[in-house]
Each structure stands twice: as structure tokens, then as C-alpha cells.
């Protein structure tokens, strides 16, 4: 039973399956699921932005704390890196839709490497920034917002790694590329979230 069903046959015996569900919406299930998940994720960030709001805006604490300095420029370069990775993953996606396997592989690999670079620079920034989350509330908020985002980058990178490996192994096709698309949405979300974090935490 196990062995038999591992076969790739998409046409499964109907004798013991359910009737296929009626599709009552044109939206794809996976897409809708990812969208709702992202709403949830946005709210997680919302909770931490609430902390930001209360400590920086409502309490009016100086930002950053006196004596601390935020490396706006380095983070700006980092932002550019992350944003360009959004473009490269888009390239990878359009490539596979058009059957361009090289574009897929190259696009995924660059995206993955750009993401790693971002994370590396971020960690380096932590190491050299000169204040710790334990020092004061501003630092706590700074680390938790950028750290929360960093955690999302990390998860995104894990997904990207899987997709990259699979694309080098010859998976995906112009017809079947949802495996590239769904992580792609997540990655775009991670990018957009960074723009929000960067502009509120570093620039404003």
C-alpha cells in the first residue's frame, strides 16, 4: 500500500477518494493561505511597532538613546541589497514561467546570496554598534524590530535554499512552479517589511 502509493501517478484511483471539492473561488488556495499568513505576520510586527510607538512617540524618548549612534548609511546599503534581491527573485520567477532554466538557477542563487549578505551585514552591525538591548528601552526596541526582521530573513533564506537546490536539481517547469512562487511572496513580504523597519527605525 505504501509502496504503491509512492508512485508518481497523479491520476489516483477514484474508487476510494473523495469527489474533488468544488472550487468556489478563483483564488488559489495556497496563495490565499500565504496571504492570510502574511497578514498574521504583519500583525506580529505590529505588536513590536506598538512597543516602538509607545516608547519613542508616546513617551517621547530621544531616539536613539543619547550617546548611541545608528549606522544609517551602512544600513542603507544593506537596504539596497535586500531590495535588489526582490528583483532577482522576480527574475527567477519570470524565467521559469518562460521555461528559461538558466534564469531560474541564476536568479535563485543571486537572491540567496544577496539575502545572506544582508544577514551578514546585519549581524556585523550588531557586533559593532556599541550598545546592547539590555542598555535601555530604545536599544531594546531597536534590537527587537531588526532582530524580528532578521529572524524572518533567516526563515526566508531557508526557503530560498530549498528552492535553489531544487532548481539546480532540475525541478520546476513552466507549468508547475508554485514551489518558486509561494516562497517568493514570502520573500517580497520580508523585503517590504524591511523598508518599513528601515524607515521608522533608522531614518525617521
Amino acid at each position: 500500500m505504501e509502496a504503491a502509493s509512492i508512485a508518481h501517478s497523479p491520476a489516483h484511483g477514484d474508487h476510494h477518494g473523495p469527489p474533488p471539492a468544488n472550487r468556489s473561488s478563483r483564488v488559489e488556495t495556497q496563495l490565499l493561505g500565504m496571504l492570510l499568513f502574511i497578514i498574521s505576520e504583519v500583525m506580529v510586527f505590529g505588536a513590536f511597532f506598538t512597543a516602538y510607538f509607545f516608547i519613542r512617540v508616546a513617551k517621547g524618548a530621544p531616539w536613539p538613546a543619547p550617546g548611541d549612534h545608528l549606522p544609517v548609511e551602512v544600513a542603507g546599503v544593506n537596504t539596497a541589497i535586500l531590495v535588489s534581491s526582490s528583483l532577482t527573485i522576480h527574475w527567477a520567477q519570470t524565467s521559469i514561467k518562460n521555461g528559461n532554466r538558466f534564469g531560474l538557477k541564476a536568479g535563485m542563487l543571486t537572491t540567496f546570496l544577496l539575502g545572506c549578505t544582508f544577514l551578514f551585514i546585519q549581524i556585523n552591525e550588531y557586533a559593532n554598534i556599541g550598545f546592547a538591548p539590555q542598555d535601555n528601552a530604545q536599544a531594546t526596541v531597536f534590537y527587537s524590530l531588526t532582530g524580528l526582521h532578521g529572524a524572518h530573513v533567516f526563515i526566508g533564506l531557508c526557503l530560498l535554499l530549498i528552492v535553489t537546490i531544487r532548481s539546480f536539481r532540475g525541478h520546476y517547469s513552466p507549468q508547475e512552479h508554485r514551489g518558486v512562487e509561494v516562497p517568493g511572496i514570502y520573500w517580497h513580504f520580508v523585503d517590504v517589511m524591511w523598508l518599513v523597519v528601515y524607515s521608522t527605525v533608522y531614518i525617521l
Binding site: S40, E41, M43, V44, G46, A47, F48, T50, A51, I55, K59, A61, A65, P133, Q134, D135, N136, A137, Q138, A139, T140, V141, Y143, S144
Partner: peptide, 27 residues
Amino acid sequence: PFIAGSQFMILLDRALGFNFFHAAKGG
């Protein structure tokens, strides 16, 4: 997600000494 956030803040305060809710440190 907001209760998840609130409890993460508590966890960070508790485990790593963050200052979300330490009034003395501006929380």
C-alpha cells in the same frame, strides 16, 4: 499575533534582560 508579541516581549525581558517593561531603563 498580538498576544504572541506580548509574550515574546516578556520572554525577552525575562531571558535576555531586555527592557520593554523595565521602567527604570525607559520601558
